[in-house]
């Protein structure tokens, strides 16, 4: 990982409270889909972790929702502003060349790491479907994905795509698919838990990116832990270090 200042290249609203920010630059070693970066925002004491949503052609992108003081300040950053970042951090989604039928399922800003993953997978010899869930039509960040992969939408109020939660279209999609090798997920814990239950019932491997408040972001403070099955019991593992991507079978959901 590196600690350095990156210059904002662009920062604009893409949907209701959702922003897309790109920095000029790249990371050494290069970021992998699923990894995150830890961003210092003005005088706030703690950095804020963001999934890397793009890392290509000397640009690093994040997708974020304005939910508090930090993201509010972030939304006002302009081209040329400099931000201190640490990245890339954590582990990416496991990839396997034998997985030819792939489903990406993300809700809200949880689609961020999947955008990066979809870009990495596009052009490969695989069938890729992107399932995207949002509260409402106005909360959808991208109706057409930057990588051009086919996507299906669900909204909770039915204003765009299928009505209901994302697990509904995931179940339908699996039922219609002849074969599915892997599911990659991102989003709020409630959604990820549902993805885990579906993957378990259908016996399809699934890997999801967990979120939490973080202090260090690098595995040294043990602030962001989650319960992970170990042997016959469970232990608190660090989302920033052992994750943020976990096999859904490892996660103990409360």
């Amino acid at each position: 990982m590196e600690a350095k200042n990156l210059s904002v290249y662009q920062n604009f609203i893409v949907a209701n409270s959702l922003y897309w920010m790109e920095f000029e630059g790249s990371f050494t070693p290069p970021a992998l889909p699923g990894q995150f970066m830890h961003v210092k925002i003005d005088n706030l004491f703690l950095r804020r972790p963001f999934s890397i949503a793009k890392c290509k052609n000397n640009r690093i992108g994040i997708l974020y929702k304005v939910i508090g003081e930090g993201t509010e300040i972030l939304s006002r950053k302009k081209k040329g502003d400099s931000l201190s970042v640490i990245g890339p951090l954590g582990n990416g989604y496991p990839l396997n060349a034998d997985w030819k039928n792939i489903c990406l399922a993300g809700g809200g800003t949880g689609i961020a790491p999947l955008l990066f993953l979809s870009d990495r997978l596009s052009g490969k010899d695989a069938n890729i479907t992107f399932l995207c869930g949002a509260k409402s039509r106005k909360d959808i960040a991208f109706r057409v994905l930057p990588c051009g992969i086919e996507s299906l939408f669900s909204t909770e109020d039915g204003s765009y795509g299928r009505s209901g939660l994302l697990d509904g279209i995931l179940k339908d999609f699996i039922r219609k698919s002849e074969k599915l090798d892997v599911i990659y997920g991102g989003g709020p814990a409630g959604l990820l838990k549902k993805i885990a239950a579906i993957s378990n019932a259908m016996d399809i491997p699934a890997f999801v990116s967990l979120e939490n408040r973080m202090a260090c972001g690098t595995g040294i403070c043990y602030g962001c832990v989650t319960k992970i099955w170990v042997g016959n019991g469970w232990e608190y593992k660090r989302i920033c270090r052992e994750g943020p991507v976990f096999d859904t079978r490892e996660i103990r959901w409360d």
Binding site: L44, F45, L46, N212, R213, M214, A215, C221, Y222, G223, C224, V225, T226, E235, Y236
Partner: peptide, 19 residues
């Protein structure tokens, strides 16, 4: 095993931890 979540809380000019 340590404390349950939340373990981290930002405060003005600092943070609370409960690891």
């Amino acid at each position: 095993e340590g404390n349950p979540q939340p373990r981290i809380w930002e405060t003005p000019a600092g943070m609370l931890n409960s690891i």
